[in-house]
Write a protein that binds this DNA or RNA. Structure first.
Lengths: 246, 246
DNA sequence: AATTAATATGAGCAAATACTCGATTTACCA
DNA sequence: TGGTAAATCGAGTATTTGCTCATATTAATT
């Protein structure tokens, strides 16, 4: 059978105008058992076609925007592509013009979100670099809290689905990058740290601890006093990393 | 008996504990447009019928066992009731004899798992109670790690889905219970703690930090040295909570 | 043995949903 | 102005999947 399922010639969106590689005999409803339509999956991620005109770019934006809204309002399972297209005010066909499948759409959303977070974290580290260590750490904790408070609902849904969507590799790498950034920061301040602190393990602990606490604070207990929480978490980290005044 | 079913508009489950309000004349394939079958949802959780004979109990066990396996192997979305029944070696009809719907099945699994965790945590606290504080804390961290290493894959899948399955209330309550246990433990040891420590915020931070770190350690970095991790996390908590030797 | 209750079966249905494709509209440019 | 490429449209389709129900089988009870 002509496996049209994963065409998208190597993702290359070259114009190749009159080159419809797939001929696909008209209809042939029964002949191709699992070919024609239904549930399948093309290349994940890679956009099928890149928008070249302004209005196309607007369409893509509208789709992403709508996807975020629907995802937040209906959850991942309740979010179907037809609905997303409807909310975006475009036809389902347009959606599939730019995203080869549902996963790719969500992936794009995740990438955008992660990029945003990493940017914040990066600039937070810049600020922290010029501060005394305790203040610097406080700044970083604050940044993490801000990250979560930015779009808490979207963050929650994406965070839940992230392990499933992105490849484990990609997920791990994002995490590793964050840890590497923290590690770099700590190495610069090594002189101020408690001697013997394990700079391999510490970033791992910090990233996950702070992420979890801020996440939970935003999701579960929005009424918690943010200042107090930041103070406490900072205190914990400082007590752990700085030399004990002994 | 009249089927205790209730159609649900979209994927979202209404928690309304509806009564068997619908009469539903038998069959009438066409007359009841959206009545007969398809996607619907009955009362969540509550088992439809309780097994009275030994073989029925065996069936229920087999179903739960199979559900866990399939959930781990295929993920939540890939796990469908027909497959679970097949793996369990029972018919789909039998499955629905004891679980009114898919959610109820997963809920049962979650409940079992949570009970298991709380038991471990409880007995861990018992042990910790008779130890000096630093050792006690180390013990608790170790217990959390053990919890995750028990059935890491199942834990991951359930943890991902938990916010969606159980009601937010139930989820929060489980968490609150854990925090209350920790709080009780700390209050007993108040004399040994740093004065001025906020016993409202600390359990929140501890539970989420330790949970996240141990979770990540098991899921993302199975090769990490567990001893070292437990040591570090313990050190962090101790440095935070005990009085600084100043 | 006969009757009843509990348990098990599985073919089949209705709804949901990801995705296609031929046709139409809009922008671009020589 | 006309030609062509880009963008849009949306009805239709193949699958999947949660779940029912009439019927069959096994165990408890009389």
């Amino acid at each position: 059978m002509p496996s049209i399922t994963k065409r998208v010639p190597s993702g290359r969106t070259s114009k190749a105008p009159g080159k419809p590689t797939d001929k696909r005999s008209a209809k042939a409803k029964q002949s191709t058992p699992k070919a024609a339509t239904g549930r399948r999956v093309a290349l994940p991620n890679a956009a099928r076609k890149r928008p070249r005109q302004a209005r196309a770019r607007a369409t893509v934006d509208a789709i992403l925007e709508a996807a975020a809204r629907v995802l937040v309002e209906e959850g991942y399972e309740g979010a179907n592509t037809n609905r997303i297209a409807e909310v975006a005010g475009v036809s389902i066909g347009s959606l599939y013009q730019y995203f080869p499948n549902k996963q790719a759409l969500v992936s794009a959303l995740v990438e955008r979100h992660v990029r945003h977070i990493m940017d914040l974290l990066g600039s937070g580290l810049m600020t922290a670099a010029s501060l005394p260590l305790p203040e610097g750490i406080r700044r970083l904790v604050q940044v993490m809290l801000d990250v979560h408070r930015l779009e808490p609902e979207l963050h929650r849904v994406l965070a839940e689905q992230l392990p499933r969507i992105s490849t484990p590799d990609h997920h791990r790498q994002t995490n590793t990058t964050a840890q590497a950034m923290i590690k770099g920061y700590l190495e610069q301040r090594r002189a101020e740290l408690r001697p013997g602190l394990d700079l391999e393990t510490v970033p791992f602990i910090l990233v996950h601890s702070v992420e979890a606490v801020t996440h939970a604070a935003v999701i579960e207990q929005p009424e918690t006093d943010p200042e107090r929480l930041v103070d406490e978490v900072t205190a914990m980290i400082v007590a752990y990393m700085l030399p004990h005044p002994h």
